[in-house]
Nucleic acid binder design. Structure first.
Lengths: 184, 184
DNA sequence: CGCATAAATGCAACTAGTTGCATAATGCTA
DNA sequence: TAGCATTATGCAACTAGTTGCATTTATGCG
């Protein structure tokens, strides 16, 4: 259901084609949602079938038609219903944690590699956040509430990423300790 | 693939039936992995088919047979291979963030409800963590590295949950501000 | 006694997401 | 000018996970 809701939100703001939505995902919504173009086209078509979207087909000479989707009243109603109900807890699935539970079978060098790779991903993410912040939210106090809302989500992303990074340092500090004492 | 890996890990420690694995998930691995019994039974059967597990069928009078699964050499190899390769970044999908992006269409009371519900979930989680910590890790310094590994994952869980809670307070503080000034 | 719940197993149908491929124009660049 | 990336669309097959249902025995409750 959530992809559906995300599509409703982006199309409520402004009608567009599947490709447009994908571009929006890549631009400002990259830290909110990721979906492949295949999934988006398929879902948009299903939503049109369910009456949540209208579709204006713009024929183009010798090319596949551009399909501009636009939210309907029924689509708005579905979005409102989704917004009204708090989200349930999401199931826990942490492959990394699983690796920690296999500690005995997890070679120290693979462990090290894992943590370094993760650290790099997280630092990249921090940089992406910083870029978005500069681009869109350089003056948080001057924003309207509606503009400040996405900024809050960015702040949470930063907080969580920082927590991860601090944790990695903690774990690595211990690893160094051990490797210092018996060379492994 | 990850469910497969988690099953390999738990069965590597000790052979067991689908039901056993489910109980282990519920006990100490609840903050690592959640899967339904249907999924577990199905996956175990597929893994046996792929030669990763041996299965000793213990017939029981007038009841479905107990199938005790046990990891094979090929299963161990697959687990080792999985442990050796760092995990890729997981795709971002934050339904809550999506709601924030729909700020204008998100009624203030639904917003409030959402945050309170989330806060409750997180506080429950903190309590669950505390219970696990007391039960298993009351003396972190006295643990062997293999025992300390799952404790680290618990610590990360706590750190992340704390970050969420701090963020909720920040967002709510702002909400109060606004509602104080124009009664909505 | 009768009924609900838990222990233990599983099939079938569904939803959600991934991977691989296909098509066809436009524009850049070597 | 040939090849390659980008724009723009989509189908088909697959993997992963959810939901609903079904079975049998044992166990506790009123």
């Amino acid at each position: 259901m959530s992809l559906r809701a995300v599509l409703l939100i982006t199309l409520q703001r402004e009608p567009g084609t599947g490709y447009d939505v994908l571009q929006r995902f890549k631009a400002g919504l990259a830290h909110v949602w990721q979906a492949s173009h295949q999934q988006i086209y398929r879902e948009l078509d299903k939503m049109r079938g369910a009456g949540l979207l209208d579709c204006e087909t713009v024929p183009q000479a010798e090319r596949p038609d551009r399909k501009v989707y636009c939210i309907t009243a029924s689509g708005r109603a579905e979005l409102d219903a989704w917004l009204a109900v708090p989200l349930g807890p999401s199931p826990v699935r942490q492959p990394l944690f699983a690796k920690f539970f296999a500690w005995d079978a997890w070679p120290a060098d693979a462990r090290q590699q894992e943590l370094v790779a993760l650290q790099e991903q997280l630092e990249e993410r921090m940089q992406a956040y910083a870029a978005i912040e500069q681009e869109w939210f350089s003056d948080p106090q001057g924003l309207t509430p509606a503009e400040r809302a996405p900024w809050h989500t960015l702040r949470l992303g930063q907080r969580l990423t920082e927590a991860w990074l601090a944790w990695i340092e903690e774990v690595q500090a211990e690893g160094e300790c051990v490797s210092g004492s018996h060379a492994q």
